[in-house]
Write a protein that binds this DNA or RNA. Structure first.
Lengths: 138, 138
DNA sequence: CCATAATTCCCCACTTTTCCCCACTGGTAA
DNA sequence: TTACCAGTGGGGAAAAGTGGGGAATTATGG
């Protein structure tokens, strides 16, 4: 659990920072995530994703809509000298993030959650962790 | 049975340590296990597992949920000069580990249990060891 | 185009946590 | 007994995380 100060700043935990490619040069793109969380992509990962988005067709209404939703709130930001990111107000509102965040590293990106929202998300699943694992992991 | 000190440190028994690949360089990833135990993976084993996770689709809600649950508490940690690992507070809480742990080597990883929880787990299986063997090993 | 307001960014300072080091105990083997 | 290794405990330095002041930049309104 990490603090968000009044300026909307969040420390990226050292534990996660060490997995971020130096290529990213401490730059990240924050955008709207799924289940009301925020996605934080190191820029190198973001660029790969952007390539995939370019392969969508802006002539397909569905694709168009998705691209807009995904990029609407996207915002690049640089770590400050204390390894913090500033989360834009609109994104904080989207994710209902006030003074605390839960931070989860998920392979290609980092997720930021309102802790309460995350707990609700977890408890909204009736299936146990164990049986989910048995199914998902083959 | 091994001690956990106030700083959350646990000695990895020499008996188990000798089976860990030198490739792991004394680095381990601890995460949430099944039946409220903790999994401790030598990094080389963890990397294999991570590959499998990367093959899941983060656009599938089920997969996404599993990835989050699995990685939420995951934390890399290095053996100290006395061959101990520090277990993060949140993981200790998850597994109800206080001052003592039962440590079980299970082929690809090591499990840490609250001793009492482990006893309860054992006695929760009515089937005998022998008939279980007959069924599982065929 | 200027003046003012608002926001962003940079810097410094403090607190908390983590990690490194040293020391001790008890058991086992020489 | 002595030497050694495994396991345990704790103090202190270093790193990580947190908070806020103020300059620089950008936006807003006249």
């Amino acid at each position: 659990m990490y603090a968000v100060d009044d300026k909307g700043r969040v420390s990226l935990p050292a534990k996660l920072r060490k997995y971020v490619s130096p290529e990213a040069n401490d730059a990240f793109v924050i955008t709207r995530g799924f289940e009301k969380c925020l996605f934080v992509y190191p820029v190198d990962e973001w660029n790969k994703l952007e390539e995939n988005l370019r392969n969508l067709s802006s002539y397909d209404p569905e694709h168009r809509r998705f691209i807009r939703a995904f990029l609407e709130l996207a915002s690049e930001s640089q770590l400050d000298a204390q390894a913090r990111l500033t989360i834009p107000q609109e994104l904080r509102e989207y994710a209902s993030i006030q003074n605390e965040v839960r931070i989860i590293g998920t392979l290609d990106k980092i997720e930021l959650w309102n802790p309460k929202v995350y707990e609700e998300y977890k408890s909204s699943e009736p299936e146990s962790y164990e049986s989910m694992a048995a199914r998902v992991m083959r």
